[in-house]
């Protein structure tokens, strides 16, 4: 057979989409409360964003998945749920490879079945922490992408996060590590925030990986947002206009108490961030010999110096 490759590498839009769905039962439960409150207060705050419940959300998501698979014969999908304490694959199932999507009809059914199953398992586990394990979900998706990339080198991966829970600052380090690894492999990380608060983590994530960060104002039209923005493959993004973030919240979380800090201490050796002064770095073990007694004095030695006055916002962190 005489085949002359005429593949325009550029026009290649086959993509692997890994969707991380936040299925935190508390957040979605809160959502129901918010929604019922809203109906009681009879649209006194009509300007606020309209909210949707989990069922409606899943419907929108299904349309989105359907359309993604329809766009290209070789498009692949993976859905990971980030829930309290753990992250799990909703699709594909562990021992089922993507290529045997023989029952494409049942992708939706598999996901729905798993989602139903989730609800009951969560009720049984009674954990203290109520935050979803987002970092685990992110690592899972990166591992999965890595695996698929080995099998199919030409596929273009991207991660799409649908988030509703607030940031868990305890996961800051692991999340940031994931973000940097995604950045290094140039995997865009898109985010759709369903709650009313912006997420610091995800803003940074989308910004660093050239992804799209969006907080839909009118959630009842969620599929329109999903279809018109988040279905853009990496090739089209170079040519089309994508929503961009005007300002990104770059605040970091301290390594000692996992608090989000505006101003803090930074280890001069390993750049760990601390909210309060200690005599040695808990990450790398460096001993800080200099004691800081006068808060106003500026000491630009190679030692961590303090900056207690909150008025000076220009240099958040000093060495």
């Amino acid at each position: 057979m005489v085949i002359i490759e005429s593949t325009d590498e550029e026009e290649y839009d086959t993509s692997l989409l890994v969707i991380i769905v936040d299925t935190n039962i508390y957040s979605w439960g809160n959502r129901i409360l918010q929604m019922s409150n809203k109906t009681e207060s009879t649209s006194s705050t009509k300007l606020g964003s309209s909210l949707i419940g989990f069922n409606t959300f899943v419907e929108h998501l299904m349309v989105f998945i359907n359309l993604h698979l329809m766009l290209n014969q070789e498009n692949q999908i993976a859905v990971i749920s980030s829930q309290i304490g753990e992250a799990r694959f909703l699709f594909p199932e562990p021992h089922q490879s993507q290529s045997t999507k023989s029952e494409q009809k049942s992708i939706q059914n598999i996901i729905l079945g798993k989602l139903l199953h989730l609800d009951t398992t969560i009720k049984e586990t009674n954990q203290e922490s109520t935050s979803s394990n987002f970092s685990a979900a992110l690592s899972l998706s990166l591992c999965y992408i890595n695996r698929i990339k080995k099998e199919v080198p030409i596929i273009r991966p991207r991660i799409f996060v649908l988030n509703i829970s607030p940031d868990a600052s305890s996961q800051y380090i692991s999340v940031m590590n994931c973000i940097f690894s995604a950045q290094k492999q140039s995997i865009p990380l898109d985010t759709c925030i369903l709650s009313q608060q912006d997420s610091t983590f995800l803003q940074q994530a989308s910004h660093l990986t050239n992804g799209i960060y969006l907080k839909p104002q009118r959630q009842e039209n969620l599929s329109q947002y999903l279809i018109s923005t988040f279905l853009m493959d990496t090739y089209s993004r170079k040519l089309l206009q994508c929503p961009t973030l005007k300002s990104v919240d770059y605040r970091a979380t301290c390594f000692c108490h996992k608090r989000i800090v505006d101003i803090g201490f930074v280890c001069s050796v390993c750049l760990s961030i601390f909210c309060s002064y200690s005599s040695s770095c808990s990450t790398c073990g460096t001993k800080f010999s200099l004691k800081i007694e006068i808060p106003k004095s500026r000491k630009s030695l190679s030692q961590p110096s303090s900056q207690e006055q909150p008025t000076n916002n220009k240099d958040k962190v000093e060495y």
Binding site: I3, T7, N72, Q73, E74, S97, S99, E151
Partner: peptide, 10 residues
């Protein structure tokens, strides 16, 4: 219909 010589992943 996709016109790709490289078909079906595996």
């Amino acid at each position: 219909t996709t016109g790709k010589t490289l078909s079906l992943m595996q």
